[in-house]
């Protein structure tokens, strides 16, 4: 058996908020195979973003391991973590706050290359332009600033910035939940094409089970800091096993008038 790209074993994360200790991640074990899209689905406050931050090394775990290609990267200091950073990149939820408003788009996209000193300085701009083209942004917009772009275009900038490092694993934390439906579809399709063409693996964090069901290979349902169910996306949707998954699916309004109104919406029972 080959080593999975990412293996998380019995991971715990806790930190202090004011006087209270909170435990957003309580013993999570997960595996992500190379080339796979794993969706992590849960409601707000379930710990999914904390898990993502821990994998990225932005939050120290209190126990457990995170193995990237067999090497434990949990809790590494920033110098040792730097080696792994190019391999694991992230696309954030908010395309407005995640881009420095004072930098031009081509600077933003080449910035990771500058930080990691990849390639000749002269070739980095060219790489940035190639990435812009790849994500569907005209290269002659490179001199513009983020505020000149729409939400969907900014998310393309965020994706270009993450992919310019040629990572193996892209962690997408609610990448489309701030976007309109028609733009959401554009970005999901773009991510899907990029994955196909560049051989990426995705950890896709979302609160929208119906959305991830359309393109994820596997789904992990997260509830109160634990993974309560995992399985192929279609199976989790059509045959949920855990009570939390069933409750969530019962509350999702499917945009189809020929389907019965979900139980959670019916008032005839009151």
């Amino acid at each position: 058996m080959t080593t999975p790209l990412l293996r998380i074993d019995n991971l715990h994360v806790s930190f202090r908020v004011g006087k209270e200790m909170i435990h957003p991640v309580r013993g999570i074990s997960l595996q992500l195979e190379r080339g796979e899209t794993l969706a992590l689905v849960g409601e707000s406050g379930c710990g999914k973003t904390t898990l993502a931050r821990t994998i990225l090394g932005l939050q120290a775990p209190s126990s457990g391991s995170i193995e990237y290609e067999g090497n434990d990267i949990a809790g590494l200091d920033r110098f040792r973590l730097k080696r792994y950073r190019p391999h694991i990149q992230c696309v954030f939820q908010d395309p407005f706050s995640s881009l420095n408003p004072r930098k031009r788009v081509e600077q933003l996209i080449r910035e990771p290359l500058d930080i990691h000193q990849i390639g000749e300085a002269s070739s980095r701009l060219k790489r940035a332009h190639e990435m812009m083209e790849r994500v569907g942004l005209p290269t002659d917009w490179g001199r513009r600033f983020p505020h000149e772009f729409s939400g969907g275009q900014r998310q393309r900038i965020g994706i270009a910035r993450a992919l310019v490092m040629q990572p193996d694993l892209l962690i997408c934390d609610e990448p489309v939940s701030a976007l309109d439906v028609s733009i959401q579809a554009q970005i999901v399709n773009l991510l899907w094409e990029l994955k196909r063409d560049m051989g990426l693996s995705y950890l896709f964090i979302s609160h929208d089970l119906m959305l991830v069901e359309t393109f994820a290979d596997r789904v992990a349902m997260m509830y109160k800091g634990e993974i309560v169910e995992t399985g192929p996306a279609r199976e989790v949707w059509s045959n949920p096993q855990h009570a939390f998954t069933r409750r969530m699916i019962d509350a999702i309004p499917v945009p189809d008038v020929t389907r019965p109104t979900p139980p959670a919406f019916r008032i005839d029972a009151d």
Binding site: G152, Q153, V181, N189, M210, T214, F215, P255
Partner: peptide, 26 residues
């Protein structure tokens, strides 16, 4: 029509391909 097609719909996903139908442009 475009808005309905761009909305994730599990039935339609089961029928074809995995990608969503998008409305081009902004």
């Amino acid at each position: 029509r475009g808005l309905l097609d761009a909305t994730p719909n599990p039935e339609r996903a089961a029928a074809g391909g995995g990608v969503l139908r998008e409305i081009p442009g902004t």
